[in-house]
Design a protein around this nucleic acid. Structure first.
Lengths: 175, 175
DNA sequence: CGCTACATGTAAGGTGTTACATGATTCC
DNA sequence: GGAATCATGTAACACCTTACATGTAGCG
């Protein structure tokens, strides 16, 4: 879905595809080369994507076919399945009583500064979006995903501030 | 880490372990039987967990050893690695221009009601926590993870409301 | 000329889920 | 006696990442 979606915006090589996925979908999606190349080969076999000159396979961008667009629409309308959650931070905090003093605060403080970083990334994503005219038809929807990232990051920061205050209280109460 | 952590609270069978992980760590962690049993066998081999009577292996709870507690503390102080994000919802929304009208709103509305559900779960987790005396030593830390879940859920709801308004605006603007 | 970026691909290995198989115990 | 729950385990498979191998093109 990610590959077809990206190619529906503009034709690209596999290499560029990975960069676009990393830079543009980065805050909610990721793919590695080991995924992308076999996927492209399979999509080409199914004639959902194609290359202009099949003879020279180097540096020739893949583009999506009509069948590919139809498949993309099918995939997009499947209900999203939420992956099983796996938060190492929460797991560590849950058993925080086992941690040495200060370790809990460090965990939360790190999470907070990561969220600050994400907030900055979202801001620059907004700036990028207005510059890249190829994304214009999708801009309204892309803004929704950026806004979601911002809401999530701000929620993390607000939680972290509360948690840090609580942890400070805990550790001074039982010295 | 999850298995050792759970056994550090109270000895359990593998079956109970899975229930506890599902019910208590559920909103930020998950394990399947296919993970738990091989993990327990390996931990027993390393003498990080043990059973009271090795002869009768049925229904005998595993308990954590001293070495297991030490290992748990080591694991807990390792920096948490954030998994590569994979949000099917955001991916679909990003390419939302390809979706038929109304599909976008349905996606967001579903996410919103899921978040409402999570909020309710967090409320009942709070109630459970005050009842279960075995969790008392960890209660303060557990409350932090519950609070994180609530912040995240409320952020999702706030975002969804904004997104729904924006999507309604979009779809009436270009009929 | 050597470094960096572009570009493609594969193989090995780790991780995790699902489904199946098996049997004991408990409860109605 | 039969159904549900407790309990343990395994095998197949899907998925994904990392590391490696290979080569081209452009640039200072």
């Amino acid at each position: 879905m990610a590959v077809l979606g990206a190619l529906s915006v503009v034709p690209m090589t596999g290499y560029a595809l990975r960069e676009q996925i990393r830079d543009t979908l980065g805050h909610f999606w990721s793919e590695s080369f080991g995924q992308i190349y076999p996927t492209l080969a399979e999509l080409e076999r199914q004639e959902l994507v194609e290359r202009q000159s099949p003879e020279d396979s180097r540096s020739t961008p893949y583009s999506i076919t009509e069948a590919g667009l139809a498949r993309l629409r099918d995939l997009l309308s499947e209900p999203p399945q939420t992956p099983k959650p796996r938060s190492g931070l929460m797991l560590r905090l849950f058993f925080g009583a086992q941690l040495e003093p200060g370790a809990g605060r460090r965990l939360v403080a790190d999470a907070r500064s990561q969220a600050e970083g994400q907030l900055a990334e979202m801001a620059s994503a907004r700036a990028e979006l207005s510059k890249d005219s190829r994304l214009a038809p999708n801009a309204a929807y892309i803004l929704l995903t950026i806004s979601a990232g911002e809401h999530a990051a701000r929620a993390t920061i607000a939680w972290a501030d509360e948690a840090l205050a609580e942890l400070a209280r805990l550790e001074t109460a039982t010295p």
